[in-house]
Design a protein around this nucleic acid. Sequence first.
DNA 1: TCGCATAGTATGGTCTGACCACACCCTGAA
DNA 2: TTCAGGGTGTGGTCAGACCATACTATGCGA
Lengths: 233, 233
Amino acid sequence: MNPAPRAYQIVLQAIEEDLRKEKLSVGDQLPGERALAERHGISRASVRDAIRILDVMGIIRTSTGSGPNSGAVIISNPSAGISQALRLHLAAKGINVREIVESRILLETWAAQMNPRDPVYAQQVIDRTAVLIMRMDDPQLSREAFHRIDAEFHVLLASMAGNSVVESMMESLRNSISDYVSDSVPSDEAWQPVVRVLRRQHKAIHHAFATNQRERAAQLLEEHINWFYSQTR
Amino acid sequence: MNPAPRAYQIVLQAIEEDLRKEKLSVGDQLPGERALAERHGISRASVRDAIRILDVMGIIRTSTGSGPNSGAVIISNPSAGISQALRLHLAAKGINVREIVESRILLETWAAQMNPRDPVYAQQVIDRTAVLIMRMDDPQLSREAFHRIDAEFHVLLASMAGNSVVESMMESLRNSISDYVSDSVPSDEAWQPVVRVLRRQHKAIHHAFATNQRERAAQLLEEHINWFYSQTR
DNA sequence: TCGCATAGTATGGTCTGACCACACCCTGAA
DNA sequence: TTCAGGGTGTGGTCAGACCATACTATGCGA
């Protein structure tokens, strides 16, 4: 049955157990790699395997040096691991862009129609997205910067629903295709008319949210996403 | 900007590039770790970091020995990485069960209402789920086995929509809470009445699918999931 | 007493080289 | 022709070393 359990899984399971029991929580430091190795009776190399996994999964952040901010510190960045997974499987042709776009529409329209769990936070989101829209109006903005703010805009709106799983998946879907998006529009000349339409759509979406027309916001989001991806093929 | 790019990222990016260009695809073998180390001018330890990441992300499968089925072979298991990420973040309290259940309902009801991309496959799914329902009727079945078949049942139904992202997320959500599910119902005595209701619900859901009542299937699925999790608190 | 440069210490990151168990393969004997 | 045996290359694991870094403690000088 279990002929060869990997050595790093010993550490991984122990840490997962500690997380579950809240012996470890966000902000805490993990014991040093050498200490973990000795505690579990395995080599530091195997401990590093576990640490590396926690790192790419967005559970911890590692840094060199000593002191309270060094070493492996628990963070919570659920989108990191999911983004990486989606990105790699997109490269490996295990999934395709159509499916990602379809999923984005599903998640974003759901989040838009969802009753916000926290009305105060929802109002903050509406205010903050208004700022993002203004920043995207800057004609000096590079395309990379525009895409970055654009992503933030969408993730922020999705966060209103108060579901971090949906929010992380949203962010991951957006991240996983960011290269694709950047490569999609070949020239800056072709980009100019596109960005004008995007700005207009963003403002309409924001207006629908601000006036609490959630159905309409969802519909506009779907059109917005579909339109943009029709431009990139 | 880039003071310390990790050594393993060199290999990771190279492999991702090869996947994108289809120089590598499912079934291919990766070069040996020693060969990759020499090619990129880094140590085997760093190469192993990259290999390990691809492994946990479900991009490759590794095994010892020699020959065409040994070493690191490209597979495509998108749910592996996402499952692991969700599972760890669930342990780290970065996400909670409510959010996972909410997401499951979102994905499953969407998939249920979606027009199948492939009618032939949809019919196969309906036939195969019928078999699973029969197997779940076995009173000798252990709870672990029941949950396993139950998960297969739900993932299979979701796969009808023909969106592997949604399917992977479904499977990952299901996997990430499997421990939670197993621990939820304390005794086998309490489990018996629960499993009877689950069987009945599964049959109703299957009937709705088989008779193409997709709206109703979605509604039954939502009730089914909500009911089960109301039992586990 | 205070301020600050310096040595000390612990961290993760990387490398080297070694040994193991395993699975295929190839050769040669029956 | 068959098949038992060793050969070879694979990932898995280990041990030990060195590095750059970042905090900490020391102690000197003002």
